[in-house]
Amino acid sequence: MIDLGKYAADVVLAYCISLGLILGLIGLSIYRAKRMKADLAAAEARIEARQNNGT
């Protein structure tokens, strides 16, 4: 492990907060993208099924 000296707590805190925020943003973006893709696919399938039943 590297020696960060007397500022170790400051440096580690800065990295933890930053990586937490950035990884949180990435995670939320991927989660919302997947959910929206699934919701849209379900809606399109529902409409297609309704159109097929109607004809």
């Binding site: 973006s29 993208a33 849209l40």
Partner: peptide
């Protein structure tokens, strides 16, 4: 990230249109 999130927004807009129809 902006590509991923814009794709999500485009899908959300399409979903809103389908739901309205």
């Amino acid at each position: 990230l902006v590509l991923l999130r814009t794709r999500t927004e485009v899908r959300a807009r399409r979903l809103a249109v389908l739901n309205a129809r």
